[in-house]
Design a protein around this nucleic acid. Sequence first.
DNA 1: AAATAGTTTAACCAAATGGTTAACTTTGCA
DNA 2: TGCAAAGTTAACCATTTGGTTAAACTATTT
Lengths: 200, 200
Amino acid sequence: MGSDSTKEKIVQAAKQIFLRKGMDGARMQEIADEAGINKAMLHYYFHSKDQLFDEVFYGILSQLIPGLISIFKSDKPFLDKIEAFVTEYDTYMSRNPFLPQFVFREINRDPDQLSRFMSDRGLNFELVEGMINREVSNGNIRPITFPHLFANLIGMIVMPYIGRPLFQRKLFKNDPIEYDRFLLERRSVITQFVKQALGA
Amino acid sequence: MGSDSTKEKIVQAAKQIFLRKGMDGARMQEIADEAGINKAMLHYYFHSKDQLFDEVFYGILSQLIPGLISIFKSDKPFLDKIEAFVTEYDTYMSRNPFLPQFVFREINRDPDQLSRFMSDRGLNFELVEGMINREVSNGNIRPITFPHLFANLIGMIVMPYIGRPLFQRKLFKNDPIEYDRFLLERRSVITQFVKQALGA
DNA sequence: AAATAGTTTAACCAAATGGTTAACTTTGCA
DNA sequence: TGCAAAGTTAACCATTTGGTTAAACTATTT
């Protein structure tokens, strides 16, 4: 049975195409071509485009989110956790450069489904939120609420990936090597930036 | 001649739909419905979907970008410029909440065109870049390159808009009023965050 | 008022798209 | 070996989509 292999080929191909074009922009034929199979096979293994998409999308999230949350469950000092978070997230992005744009696009397309997915898996932020509030009341970091710190962090990490096509052209003379160097630099730049902002 | 009014109705309707759904997700019929006119009128005033899209997209950018750059041409102290930039940008976003997601989606769809558009209009960052380098060499702010500071700023400003559907649900119990309050807070939070990070 | 140019509409079209069908091939196993 | 199930394919289908057309309507000009 080539079944397992074919199904896997489909998932991989769908990942490529969906990541680059999003749900709306992707074509089933394109996915089939990328996988090197007949289009009917897509519907043999997955009922519909929607189901295939969900499989891919939530497969990616299931892989990404738990790793990020687990960082905050370690017993490192708080600022080291931030450093680990930045590095881990950024490493993942560098291997999946289209992911942020993809995730945010779909966040806006069907937010309820995503929200439900996270709730179902017990993925919430209360643990991290409490941790930050404690750091603030202990006077270890300057006052800031969790949503603000979270938005700041994610924003800084994600922006150079989402904006890459423009940033690379306008700020790095469209030199991809220079831009990759820039991306790598950001791990320490962001960490330093946050540490200083939090007065640590 | 209802011409001018009809054309304007089309542009406004197209703006709404394109902002929410992007180029791929938008339907010409939907735009016609939103404008309350016959679909053929879209092609009467604009040759194609692509041309209509470009008109809308670059109309928005033409309005947004110059205002942002002019802030840095004023003679305020540098950190006040940052504050003004954050406030101005954020005010614009609050009036056009779908804009960031939209812009970044299209940045990825056709980067060359956007890059050319900016070049044609002389919209480049050299002025601001020089300004920041000068601040650093004068020792007024901690060392940081322009691309890093730019990515940090834009990321922090834009993130809560791009991620709103999820953030509001997961961090604010899906209460839109609380989220709007959060968005407003961010202007000062970001400004403070940056000032402290830059050691000012 | 007649001719003309600009505006609007309903009906239509070809291409693309997600999805189905029925026949054919391969595989696992009694 | 033979047969049932799984896997695969080409051809097909209904709907959607961007776009066109020709006729009708409206305003302007003379």
